[in-house]
Amino acid sequence: MKISVDVDCTPEEARRFMGLPDMTAVHDAYIDKMKKTIEEGVTPDALETMMRNWMPMGEAGMNMWRTMFDQIGRAGGSTSK
């Protein structure tokens, strides 16, 4: 026998139902700091250091970020202003 249950709820409702903490303030602070850093200008080395400090994801995670920013850099470098 197989029983399926569909639950229609928002992410906020699911978080509360499961008893997970509300990380909205932490997320907002993180995004604000990231925006401020980018607006002030950031070098690739500074960005890598910042990511290592903020996101303890290990080497695999850093490689993902490095690849993403390399692709963005190449795409941004090919446009002319």
Results as ranks from 00 to 15, higher is better:
residue 33 K to R: 14
residue 78 S to F: 11
residue 44 P to W: 04
residue 68 M to K: 09
residue 75 A to M: 12
residue 35 K to Y: 09
residue 62 M to S: 05
residue 3 I to H: 10
residue 48 E to Y: 07
residue 59 E to S: 03
residue 72 I to Q: 11
residue 55 M to H: 09
residue 16 R to Q: 01
residue 77 G to Q: 14
residue 10 T to N: 07
residue 51 M to E: 09
residue 70 D to N: 12
residue 38 I to K: 11
residue 72 I to G: 05
residue 33 K to S: 14
residue 16 R to Y: 00
residue 70 D to Y: 08
residue 74 R to A: 09
residue 72 I to E: 07
residue 66 R to Q: 14
residue 48 E to D: 10
residue 29 A to G: 06
residue 31 I to L: 12
residue 7 V to M: 02
residue 36 K to C: 06
residue 11 P to Q: 11
residue 41 G to C: 09
residue 2 K to C: 07
residue 57 M to L: 13
residue 62 M to I: 00
residue 29 A to C: 06
residue 18 M to N: 07
residue 50 M to V: 01
residue 47 L to C: 02
residue 21 P to N: 02
residue 35 K to S: 06
residue 49 T to M: 05
residue 23 M to G: 10
residue 7 V to W: 00
residue 12 E to T: 10
residue 10 T to P: 00
residue 52 R to L: 08
residue 36 K to N: 13
residue 22 D to I: 01
residue 64 M to W: 14
residue 51 M to G: 05
residue 26 V to Y: 02
residue 19 G to T: 00
residue 6 D to W: 11
residue 59 E to Y: 04
residue 31 I to E: 07
residue 72 I to D: 04
residue 61 G to Q: 01
residue 68 M to F: 15
residue 47 L to W: 01
residue 59 E to Q: 11
residue 26 V to H: 10
residue 14 A to F: 03
residue 41 G to Y: 04
residue 63 N to F: 03
residue 48 E to R: 15
residue 80 S to H: 13
residue 74 R to P: 00
residue 81 K to H: 14
residue 58 G to K: 04
residue 66 R to S: 10
residue 2 K to H: 09
residue 12 E to G: 04
residue 37 T to R: 13
residue 52 R to E: 07
residue 71 Q to Y: 10
residue 60 A to P: 03
residue 53 N to K: 14
residue 77 G to E: 15
residue 4 S to P: 02
residue 14 A to E: 06
residue 71 Q to S: 12
residue 74 R to H: 08
residue 68 M to S: 03
residue 42 V to Y: 00
residue 54 W to H: 04
residue 12 E to A: 13
residue 14 A to Q: 09
